[in-house]
Structure formats: C-alpha cells, structure tokens
Simulated scan of single mutants.
Amino acid sequence: MFDLVPFRRRNEDLFGQMLKSFNEAFDQELLAPLHSNTRSFRTDIRETDKGYLIEAELPGFTKEDIEIDVQDKYLTIRAKRNQVDEEKDENGKIIRSERHYGEFARQFYVEGIEEDGIKAKLQDGVLKLDIPKKEKKEPTNKRIGIE
C-alpha cells in the first residue's frame, strides 16, 4: 500500500526527474534545427601567403543558380533554387508534386584582395573560390630636401 522508499529520497528522485525532463526539453541537440540558420550553407576558409581559398557546399545547385558579388569590401555568395518535381498518371492527373524554393546566402568581409583576380569553380556540389591578396607595398624612405 505504501512505498518503502523514504520520503526524502522520493522527493529527490522526483526533483531529479523534473530537472532531467527540463534539461532534455532544452537540449541543444534536440533544438539544433531551430538554432541553425536554414538559409545558409557550410563553408571552409583557408588563408595562404598569396590569398584565400573558400570552399562552399552547394549540392544540387548549378552554376546558373549561383551569384558571387564583391561590393564595399564584402564578398557575397548567393544560391537560388526553384525546383518543381511533378509525377502524372497516364490520364495526365498529378499524383505527386514537390516544390523546392529558397535562397541561400553567405557574406564575408574581405579587405586587401584583388577583386579582378577572383576565380570560381563548381565541382561535385562544392564551390571553390580562389581569392588573391593585394601585393603589399614595402614602405619607402624618401628624404625631403629643405629649401
């Protein structure tokens, strides 16, 4: 009829269970889809002595779907998808229709680059950008004569 667990222990277990439930409700892994930016894509950036290499994962996009712009020291990569898949039966009725629309964009602050030297290549769903740095000018010493 009565539990043989001491009252204090049962309260601790109840509190522990409530705390565990609360923590599970706000677990970062469970909420990861809510925290992630669904309008972005993964990138890797490497710096070399001569420039930067950006690799952006854009599976399923063609080069016509991707725009790359440099403006006011910001490099913007934008990919748009407008895909419609329809299946029709022999009478022409649609039995399944799926649509994928969206725009994905990333912006990077780039200073001291040669904008005209940027090269882009899309292969196997990975966009590779080779961005050369501007040549650093060595400081010069100039003696000024006095009149």
Rank of each mutant, 00 (worst) to 15 (best):
V84Q: 00
R143A: 02
D130E: 12
A25P: 07
D44V: 12
N141D: 12
E115P: 01
T140P: 06
N91E: 06
R10P: 05
E29H: 08
L75K: 01
I54M: 05
F104L: 03
Q107Y: 07
E135F: 11
Q83S: 04
L31I: 03
S97I: 14
K50I: 15
E87Y: 04
R39S: 10
H100V: 09
P132W: 11
I95N: 01
L129A: 04
E135C: 04
F15G: 09
E86V: 00
S21K: 11
L129R: 01
K142S: 12
E115R: 03
D89P: 00
K20L: 08
E111A: 08
F26Y: 09
D116R: 15
D89Y: 00
K137N: 14
K121A: 09
A120L: 08
D116Y: 14
R9F: 07
K136P: 06
E115M: 01
E57D: 11
Q28W: 15
R39T: 10
E12N: 15
P6I: 08
K121W: 08
F61A: 00
G125N: 04
R78H: 02
R46A: 08
K93S: 11
I144K: 07
D3S: 14
L75N: 00
F15R: 05
E55H: 03
R8C: 08
F7W: 14
E64F: 03
G145E: 15
Y74W: 09
P59Y: 00
R9K: 09
G112L: 06
